Simulated assay, not measured.
Amino acid sequence: MFGEGGCNVNFVTSQSEGDISVRTYERGVEDETWSCGTGCVASVLTDYYKNRQIRNYQVNVRGGQLKVEFTPLGDQGYKDIWLEGPATFVFKGEITRGEGLELMK
């Protein structure tokens, strides 16, 4: 239904005006992630589009709290979108030659 590559899904709950909680199931990970910046921004802009109340949001995710600010341009979209929050190292991986992976040239 969502194509061969799948898709990310965000589950959003509005806590109060400008305060939402987001949980994200991320393709590739095939599980819930602690935070997804793109998903959080999309969730904020969707909430604003639906409710048109506030332009400074607090977003609660499993990994902590994020802040999203933006400037709406009416029907023309948004500009000056800022995502702010802590960056925490959670994973290290390595890809080496000879493991059946094709490398881009």
Score class of each variant (00 low, 15 high):
residue 1 M to P: 01
residue 1 M to H: 08
residue 1 M to I: 08
residue 2 F to R: 13
residue 3 G to D: 06
residue 3 G to E: 09
residue 3 G to F: 05
residue 3 G to H: 03
residue 4 E to T: 07
residue 4 E to D: 13
residue 5 G to R: 14
residue 6 G to E: 10
residue 6 G to S: 10
residue 6 G to A: 12
residue 7 C to F: 06
residue 7 C to I: 04
residue 7 C to L: 15
residue 8 N to G: 07
residue 8 N to V: 06
residue 10 N to Y: 01
residue 11 F to E: 12
residue 11 F to G: 04
residue 13 T to D: 14
residue 13 T to A: 15
residue 14 S to E: 15
residue 15 Q to C: 12
residue 16 S to W: 03
residue 17 E to V: 12
residue 17 E to T: 06
residue 18 G to Q: 07
residue 18 G to S: 09
residue 19 D to I: 07
residue 20 I to N: 01
residue 20 I to W: 01
residue 21 S to D: 07
residue 22 V to Q: 08
residue 22 V to F: 04
residue 24 T to D: 10
residue 26 E to L: 14
residue 26 E to W: 07
residue 27 R to F: 08
residue 28 G to M: 14
residue 29 V to L: 15
residue 29 V to P: 01
residue 29 V to T: 10
residue 31 D to G: 09
residue 31 D to W: 02
residue 32 E to F: 13
residue 33 T to Q: 11
residue 35 S to P: 00
residue 36 C to Y: 02
residue 37 G to M: 08
residue 37 G to Q: 07
residue 37 G to T: 02
residue 37 G to D: 06
residue 37 G to E: 06
residue 39 G to M: 02
residue 39 G to V: 00
residue 40 C to A: 12
residue 41 V to L: 07
residue 43 S to T: 01
residue 45 L to V: 05
residue 45 L to C: 08
residue 46 T to I: 06
residue 46 T to E: 14
residue 47 D to P: 00
residue 47 D to I: 01
residue 48 Y to F: 15
residue 48 Y to C: 08
residue 48 Y to M: 13
residue 49 Y to D: 13
residue 49 Y to P: 00
residue 50 K to M: 15
residue 50 K to F: 06
residue 50 K to H: 08
residue 52 R to H: 10
residue 55 R to H: 04
residue 56 N to L: 13
residue 56 N to R: 11
residue 59 V to C: 03
residue 59 V to M: 07
residue 59 V to R: 00
residue 60 N to H: 09
residue 60 N to P: 00
residue 60 N to M: 11
residue 61 V to H: 00
residue 61 V to W: 00
residue 62 R to V: 02
residue 64 G to C: 06
residue 65 Q to D: 04
residue 66 L to I: 01
residue 66 L to C: 02
residue 66 L to F: 02
residue 66 L to Q: 03
residue 66 L to T: 00
residue 67 K to G: 07
residue 68 V to R: 02
residue 68 V to I: 13
residue 69 E to S: 14
residue 70 F to S: 04
residue 71 T to R: 12
residue 71 T to M: 11
residue 72 P to W: 02
residue 72 P to E: 08
residue 72 P to L: 04
residue 73 L to D: 09
residue 73 L to W: 04
residue 73 L to T: 03
residue 73 L to G: 02
residue 73 L to K: 14
residue 75 D to K: 13
residue 79 K to M: 12
residue 79 K to V: 06
residue 80 D to K: 09
residue 80 D to N: 12
residue 80 D to Q: 11
residue 80 D to S: 09
residue 80 D to Y: 02
residue 82 W to I: 11
residue 83 L to C: 05
residue 87 A to K: 10
residue 88 T to Y: 12
residue 89 F to K: 15
residue 89 F to E: 15
residue 89 F to T: 09
residue 91 F to N: 13
residue 91 F to W: 10
residue 93 G to D: 05
residue 93 G to Y: 03
residue 93 G to Q: 04
residue 93 G to F: 04
residue 94 E to P: 00
residue 94 E to M: 15
residue 96 T to S: 15
residue 97 R to N: 10
residue 98 G to W: 03
residue 98 G to I: 03
residue 101 L to I: 08
residue 102 E to D: 10
residue 103 L to T: 02
residue 103 L to V: 05
residue 103 L to Y: 06
residue 104 M to V: 10
residue 105 K to D: 13
residue 105 K to F: 07
